[in-house]
């Protein structure tokens, strides 16, 4: 029997955002990444084609992290000692872009140097995170923004308590910003408004609604993303931004991923479980609307990439 298929027609759409600039565009990247542009809920290609696929960023640090799981250290090995090597290896692993996380030990000089070395080691677009303390973030991100003018980096992480300096320097130097709020639709919207009010154009903001890992609050992140996407499609301009989330960071914090010994036998093999924790968290978030997922383990990258391919097959 013929079926009259109900299709949603939305008035709104997601902003298209491009990260990175090629030489022709005033930067030095060999590739750029474009996300956003959706006019449907995630991957409902019977309503409209999915314009840009979600992308995978691999998170690296300016120095070998002390507190990362042994499994991650095995995976990246010596490359971790040098951000440029690490970035190169991340590119080979299949990253679409790199997240370089600065640490509290970085000085403005060392941070600029690290960013520059990563930019010359890979042609991928770059996201740079401060260490997460307002003063230090600003102290490091401003000189980086200036030293990489025109590269269209994403600078982060802007939060309601600290966004002005980062937004101002991003605007002055042709970069983008990442706007993070703690899993709340209205807070996301508010921060996007504050950043826009400073004059930052919408096509240069990525929102980060925050998420929890599988078993540790993923359901909140999952639903907040669905609600943000629905609000955006309904026409609420200040929610129409692509979304970045950090399943890698969240998953590798959990005991299930971090700890191999002294855990219940019913948790199974450590390595497979840890990678599942990250991969499954990421997949669930992609299903709920993530445009950029930041991951840590190469095997998760491979599996998530594979899934993205399948979701993007045209209807």
């Amino acid at each position: 029997m013929p079926i009259d298929m109900p299709k949603d027609k939305w008035p709104g759409s997601i902003q298209t955002v491009t990260i990175g600039a090629t030489t022709a565009e005033g930067g030095t990247r060999t590739r750029t990444v474009t996300v956003g542009g959706q006019t449907t809920m995630p991957y409902l290609q019977f309503e409209a084609p999915a314009p840009h696929r979600p992308v995978i960023a691999i998170e690296i640090k300016t120095r070998k992290p002390e507190d990362w799981s042994e499994l991650l250290i095995d995976a990246w090995d010596e490359a971790m000692a040098d951000p440029a090597q690490w970035a190169k290896k991340a590119e080979e692993t299949g990253a679409d872009l790199i997240v370089l996380a600065l640490t509290l030990e970085d000085s403005p000089d060392s941070a600029v140097k690290a960013v520059k070395s990563v930019l010359s080691a890979t042609g991928l677009p770059l996201i740079v995170w401060g260490p997460g303390q307002a003063e230090k973030d600003n102290e490091l991100l401003v000189p980086i923004a200036e030293a990489t003018k025109g590269e269209q980096l994403v600078l982060g992480i802007c939060e309601d308590k600290n966004y002005r300096t980062i937004v101002a320097t991003a605007m002055a130097n042709g970069h983008l910003v990442q706007a993070r709020t703690p899993m709340d639709v209205n807070l996301s919207k508010q921060l996007n408004i504050l950043i826009s009010d400073m004059g930052m154009p919408k096509e240069r903001i990525i929102m980060d609604p925050t998420t929890g890992a599988l078993g540790y609050g993923i359901e909140y992140g999952y639903s907040v993303m669905e609600r943000l996407r629905l609000a955006a499609l309904q026409g609420d301009a200040m929610t129409q931004l692509p979304m970045l989330v950090t399943p890698g960071f969240e998953a590798w914090k959990t005991k299930e991923a971090k700890v191999g010994k002294g855990v219940p036998e019913t948790w199974g093999d450590w390595k497979a479980r840890a990678i599942n924790w990250e991969t499954l968290t990421a997949i669930a978030l992609i299903e709920s609307g993530a445009d950029i997922v930041v991951l840590r383990h190469p095997e998760s990258v491979r599996r998530v990439k594979d899934a993205i391919e399948e979701l993007m097959v045209p209807a």
Binding site: L214, W267, G268, D269, A272, R273, N276, L280, A284
Partner: peptide, 10 residues
């Protein structure tokens, strides 16, 4: 178990 457990949690 390393697959069943995360799926049950999800």
């Amino acid at each position: 178990p390393e697959m069943i457990y995360p799926l049950l949690v999800l």
